[in-house]
Design a protein around this nucleic acid. Structure first.
Length: 844
DNA sequence: CACGCAACTTAGTAAGACCCCC
DNA sequence: GGGGGTCTTACTAAGTTGCGTG
């Protein structure tokens, strides 16, 4: 029924996206006069996803959409406090209202989101931070690998959503599940993948053998014993994905490492570097001086101009001062850090100017440290550690309007550190004269070192590199879960559509939220404590002020306009038509609410995830992001690549005649035709078959995902310039081309006149030249297109975290692209499992 | 069941490495 | 061979999720 009518994000997007995407290329294609002003069309088509790129074209506005300069924020900030009191009142009012309206039988009072307990929390946190050196008893945290999955068994559902609680999911249950879940891999995936794995392994190993990975040999087979001698191991690539996984929730059996590398101790400034207070020189005590240098180093940074930053910094700085300093220094504005700042600049300049030898020495030293501390032995293998250095002290740089920016990030000492390793390993030694806070042997967790940070009181960890088994397995599992979602997503969609009609408010809210998460790939949106972090939201924490409803907008109906700050205070702006029912629900949710009230007042992430868990084992909100990202990549790749290919095939076989019908069919590929009939004699096979074109396709598919997930970046500082450079190259190439053409013409004329062999040869030569230049031009233009489209979109995040690497690997194989074009060395290491196991016919 | 914590994933930025052209 | 630009890596902040607990 409804299901049939439902268009997934990707399906809906595919059309416009494709058109747009190719249109943009056309737009670039100035060598063909005829081009229409693609821009307006473009922004129309793309706007619901690519909101920023056109609207914010003006350079100086580039930054505008980023971070908090949201006009509303300020006001909200002000409003917040005065409003918070009303809130409770309103809440109950609200409840009542709903009750009447909807005959709500709402099961709990969970609707109130308590906003004012954060004072309490703060207190607790402070204590915690203070007390953090007191050893805590170690906890037994049994079920380690919670998330793993059994076959896509889906609970039969509808109706029961409410009190439905099939089994109290306590440890035992979970536990058992875990146990069998673990063989999902050997059972299914592995079976499937492995069939072919054998044969492929050979071809692939050879192809893959590349300059970066010199010493690798063949699959290494597991070693029997406990792995004290990793020496040999890095020589061979260990294929952990071919081995069985632990089923008992333990993450490892043996773990040995060297502990963390601490930040260098403070090196006091040379005496001639002065600090002035109120115009007078002043010698600072070392602790005060150190903190001062943190600030001095940042003088050029915008941070230091922000009030909160300055205030927080000054407050914390004063804590480090001696009483005399404290009494003297009472105004940050009177502090002059310039000499310090100059000094550090000079230092880094000097560093750049160092001789090769010196640089080499440093490099070697770093390498030595890396070799010593950068690896651990986990079970039988030497594995790379992700971050083995302790974060050095400094000033906290929160993102967005962070209330704590500028606070002093304390220096971490050995006494703050908890070491985790196995009992039977050689324990890392604390620096002489110090001791660890704690030494524990917990193999239910993956971290090697942890400490509590003093800004938020949260725990920081040292963990393994993404190329490690422990991270890789998890990553793989993540995609398997997303693939299981794929199998039942239509059912879930039908369900939440059905829930839009529920008579329970909380269910409607849940269903609408889920719709957003699915359709727009929004994050779950946990609630956060006010005043502790920047004010950002996700789906469940959206507030009334973050959406605008437009019953009619341009030629569309039921448009929802989103405008809020998400993770990292990145702005999410999107206008999207929704189904009538959703729209009506939203209107309902908004009734009688103030801008700063929660849109979904009966919902939070925990409720949502609990529900999802019931719908599919292992399903949580973020799985939708993974799923939608990966499926979008797959579809876009298919669509883009095969359409280009088809069109070019058509052109090759029908080069002589124009066929309007066909041209219509490939309207979105019009630029091919234009090229063709503008008699640009590009070799079509080159155009669509060579890597640049395919890479462009890939990047565009990747970009579609990045847009979906709202992965933005600041336009590179050098963007304009580099674009210009490229443009210059293109212009030059054009000139070259027209020269070459003229020559060809002349040559042809000559040949016509003389009909001799020699002139014929010349014609050939010239023709070749023209062709070559045309191809080079195309290549440059593709590059330019790619770069322009990428201006403020970050591809890396999705590539690294959301896109099932097997899709990319399969695509590379299918189109005969070397994997290095898609993944750099690090990425290849991280995705080694996928590179090894995916066939060209892999389906997400 | 709300809360808070612990653990882990996802995120953008900036420094550093590298590369390519003049 | 060095300067500018780009790509990669390091860094660490900011999310999500699950679980134990009062």
């Amino acid at each position: 029924m409804m299901m049939g009518g439902y268009l997934s994000v990707q399906e809906q997007e595919q059309g416009p996206l494709l058109v747009v995407v190719l249109w943009m290329e056309m737009d670039k294609e100035r060598l063909l006069g005829e081009l229409c002003s693609a821009n307006s069309l473009l922004s129309d088509l793309f706007s619901h996803q690519m909101h920023y790129s056109h609207k914010h074209k003006d350079k100086h506005k580039d930054k505008e959409h980023r971070h908090k300069d949201h006009k509303k924020d300020k006001e909200r900030e002000k409003a917040k406090h005065s409003n918070s009191e009303h809130r409770e009142g309103r809440d109950s009012e609200k409840k009542q209202r709903d009750k009447e309206k909807e005959k709500l039988k709402h099961s709990n009072g969970s609707s109130d989101k308590h906003r004012d307990k954060h004072k309490e929390k703060e207190k607790r946190r402070d204590e915690k931070v203070k007390l953090s050196h007191i050893d805590k008893p170690k906890k037994e945290n049994e079920n380690g690998y919670a998330r793993e999955k059994s076959p896509p068994h889906i609970k039969s559902e509808p109706e029961e959503d409410n009190g439905f609680d099939p089994l109290p999911k306590h440890k035992p249950t979970k536990r058992e599940r875990d146990d069998e879940e673990f063989d999902y891999k050997p059972k299914k995936v592995k079976k499937e993948d492995e069939k072919k794995a054998k044969k492929r392994r050979q071809d692939y190993d050879e192809d893959e053998e590349d300059e970066d990975i010199k010493p690798k040999k063949k699959t290494k087979v597991k070693k029997g014993t406990d792995g004290k001698k990793p020496k040999k191991e890095e020589e061979e690539k260990w294929k952990w994905w071919e081995e069985e996984r632990a089923t008992d929730g333990s993450k490892w059996r043996f773990l040995e490492h060297m502990g963390p590398v601490f930040a260098l101790p403070y090196d006091p400034l040379p005496h001639h570097i002065r600090f002035f207070y109120d115009g007078k020189q002043m010698k600072l005590s070392p602790p005060a001086e150190e903190v001062a240098t943190f600030f001095a180093k940042m003088l050029d940074h915008e941070y230091t101009t922000k009030d909160i930053f300055r205030k927080n910094f000054f407050k914390d700085w004063r804590k480090e001062m001696t009483p005399e300093e404290k009494s003297k220094i009472s105004d940050l504005n009177k502090c002059n850090f310039n000499e310090m700042n100059e000094y550090f600049k000079a230092q880094s300049e000097a560093k750049k100017q160092m001789s090769k030898d010196e640089k080499l020495k440093i490099k070697e030293e770093n390498e030595r440290i890396l070799q010593e501390y950068g690896f651990c032995v986990m079970d039988n293998h030497k594995e790379r550690i992700g971050n083995f250095r302790i974060e050095p002290p400094g000033l906290f740089r929160g993102r967005g309007d962070h209330p704590k920016m500028g606070m002093l990030k304390r220096r971490i000492r050995p006494e703050d550190i908890i070491i985790n390793c196995s009992k039977d390993s050689k324990h890392p030694k604390p620096p002489v004269g110090t001791r660890w806070k704690e030494l524990r042997h917990d193999n239910k967790v993956t971290w090697l070192v942890s400490w509590t940070e003093n800004i938020q009181g949260s725990i920081k960890y040292i963990m393994l590199n993404p190329s490690s088994r422990i991270k890789g397995e998890k990553d793989w599992q993540k995609y398997e879960t997303a693939r299981r979602l794929k199998k039942c997503v239509e059912r879930l969609r039908a369900q939440y559509r059905d829930d839009w009609k529920s008579k329970e408010m909380r269910i409607r809210q849940r269903a609408v939220a889920l719709y957003f998460i699915d359709k727009l790939a929004l994050r779950a949106g946990n609630e956060k404590e006010e005043g502790e972090t920047a004010d950002t939201v996700g789906c469940c924490s959206l507030r009334v002020e973050h959406i605008n409803l437009h019953p009619k907008m341009d030629d569309q109906e039921y448009v929802v306009e989103f405008d809020f700050l998400g993770k990292d205070s990145i702005r999410y702006y999107n206008k999207i038509p929704v189904e009538k029912r959703v729209f009506k629900n939203l209107q309902l949710f908004l009734e009688n609410k103030q801008p700063e009230d929660d849109l979904f007042d009966r919902l939070n992430t925990s409720i949502l995830n609990k529900h999802l868990q019931e719908l599919m084992d292992g399903l949580t909100a973020k799985v939708f992001r993974t799923y939608n990202a990966s499926i979008t990549l797959q579809q876009q790749l298919k669509a883009l690549t095969s359409r280009m290919r088809k069109a070019s095939a058509y052109l090759v076989s029908h080069s002589a005649t124009r066929n309007p019908a066909v041209e219509m069919r490939y309207a979105d590929l019009r630029f091919f035709f234009l090229l063709r009939f503008a008699s640009v004699n590009v070799a079509y096979t080159t155009l669509t078959t060579t890597s640049p074109a395919k890479i462009l396709s890939y990047n565009r598919a990747n970009r579609a995902v990045a847009v979906l997930c709202n992965h933005q970046r600041a336009p590179p500082k050098t963007f304009e310039k580099s674009m210009q450079n490229l443009q210059t190259k293109i212009d030059d190439k054009r000139k070259q081309l027209s020269t070459a053409r003229k020559q060809l013409k002349t040559a042809k004329a000559d040949h016509k006149a003389s009909h001799d062999d020699r002139s014929k040869k010349t014609v050939e030569v010239k023709r070749k030249a023209v062709q070559r230049i045309e191809e080079q031009l195309m290549k440059l233009q593709m590059q330019a297109t790619d770069r322009e489209e990428n201006k403020q979109i970050a591809l890396g995040t999705s590539k690294l975290n959301y896109l099932d690497p097997r899709i990319s690997v399969a695509w590379c194989k299918k189109w005969d692209i070397s994997i290095e074009k898609i993944y750099n060395k690090t990425q290849r290491e991280k995705f080694a499992w996928a590179i090894d196991m995916a066939e060209d016919d892999y389906e997400f």
